[in-house]
Design a protein around this nucleic acid. Structure first.
Length: 320
RNA sequence: GCCUGGGUAGCUCAGGUAGUUAGAGCGCUUCUCUGAAAAAGAAGAGGUCGUCAGUGCAAGUCUGACCCCAGGCA
């Protein structure tokens, strides 16, 4: 039997310095980086997402970066496919894939800790359901899928819409309304399944490293980073997005680093307000990321300065 | 110095004719998370109502003095 493949994950809040660490580690360990960031997948969104530059990559190949147009909606599942494809390629080269990103949902899905129903988004249905009240949606779901209705967040329209989308799809394709809800087993190893089918035949082992910053220090970094973004031209970048045909509405959905510059460009807020909101929302986002990551006890936390220690942990993991 | 408006939660403000545990939005804290996740949601903690005195059974709400703030007049 072959030794299981290895995967290293580097995660952390926004402005934690993940990208730099990932490149550094990739150079030390003969690895390649797979980005796990829900905004960096879009082309033309570089400054505002803090995407690594060619220079910063320092020759290390990066995957799942700038893979689609901001006009399109990229899903967690799209990411999963992209990342899995990249992992296979990297392993084939006898290198180690290093997943690096702050989108916890994407990472957990990739690691098999979260299961998703094999149902693609249905924009038409979503638009239609979006007109209904939360109560109406919940009642609908209770009728269509009483089981799901029992443990769903009844006040969250987005969740309700997705749940209804799933039952409707399953009903239409004559499948059972329920879906496999089993989660991965093992401490650092999961067998991936999709809709009950095993899609990842080869189990692999995972090492998750989290960068831990003191709260105040991270806030300083966020403020600094945001100011730098403005200097480097997020406003111009936002303008370019608009000129390339992305609607203001869509730009608003692409994150606060574009939403507020867009409002500034439209004369709705001042430049000062723009900067303040960007910083504030970054801080709130960082907090949400912390809450998400905190649940996973398998994450090894390291201080930003502990480069040698981090490398040591990674080497021990790879040598096992 | 005089006139006017105002001083209520960290911030911006609601609180007819005085009457149960003073509210909202934002922020803050904590949390949720099954193909939109930089998204979408939930719960919670904050106020001796500028200060002092007075009138009332009862005052954020009325009266007086004083202290701040903004604008106007001199």
């Amino acid at each position: 039997m072959n030794k299981p493949e290895k995967l290293i994950v580097i995660l952390g809040q926004t402005a934690s310095g993940k990208s730099g660490l990932a490149v550094w580690l990739a150079r030390q360990l003969a690895g390649e980086v797979i980005s796990a960031d829900s905004r960096q997948v879009y082309k033309g969104m570089n400054i505002g997402t803090g995407k690594v530059t060619k220079k910063e990559m320092a020759g290390i190949p990066h995957h799942c970066l700038s893979v689609t147009s901001p006009k399109k909606v990229y899903t967690a599942s799209d990411f999963e496919k992209c990342a899995e494809g990249a992992m296979e390629k990297i392993w084939a080269k006898n290198k180690v894939p290093i997943v690096c990103g702050g989108t916890g949902f994407y990472i957990d899905l990739l690691l098999g800790k979260i299961q998703t129903a094999d149902v693609p988004p249905n924009p038409k249905l979503r638009k239609e359901l979006g007109k209904k009240s939360t109560e109406q949606l919940f009642k609908m779901l209770q009728k269509l899928d009483p089981e799901r209705a029992k443990n769903i967040d009844a006040k969250n329209p987005r969740r309700l819409i997705r749940a209804i989308e799933i039952v409707k799809y399953k009903t239409n394709s004559n499948e059972l309304a329920s879906f496999d809800s089993r989660v991965g087993v093992g401490v650092h190893s999961w067998v991936k399944t999709r809709g009950g089918q095993i899609t990842q035949a080869t189990p692999y082992e995972v090492l998750q490293i989290g960068i831990a910053w003191p709260k105040e220090k991270l806030k300083e970094r966020i403020a600094q980073r945001t100011a730098t973004m403005v200097k480097q031209g997020v406003i111009k970048e936002t303008k370019k997005l608009k000129e390339s045909g992305v609607t203001w509405k869509r730009i608003g959905e692409l994150g606060f680093e574009y939403k507020y510059p867009a409002l500034f460009l439209r004369g709705k807020i001042t430049k000062k307000e723009m900067l303040e909101r960007m910083i504030l929302e970054s801080e709130q986002y960082a907090k949400r990321q912390t809450t998400w990551f905190k649940r996973d006890k398998n994450i090894v936390l390291v201080k930003p300065t502990e480069l040698k220690k981090t490398q040591g942990i990674a080497r021990v993991f790879l040598a096992k």
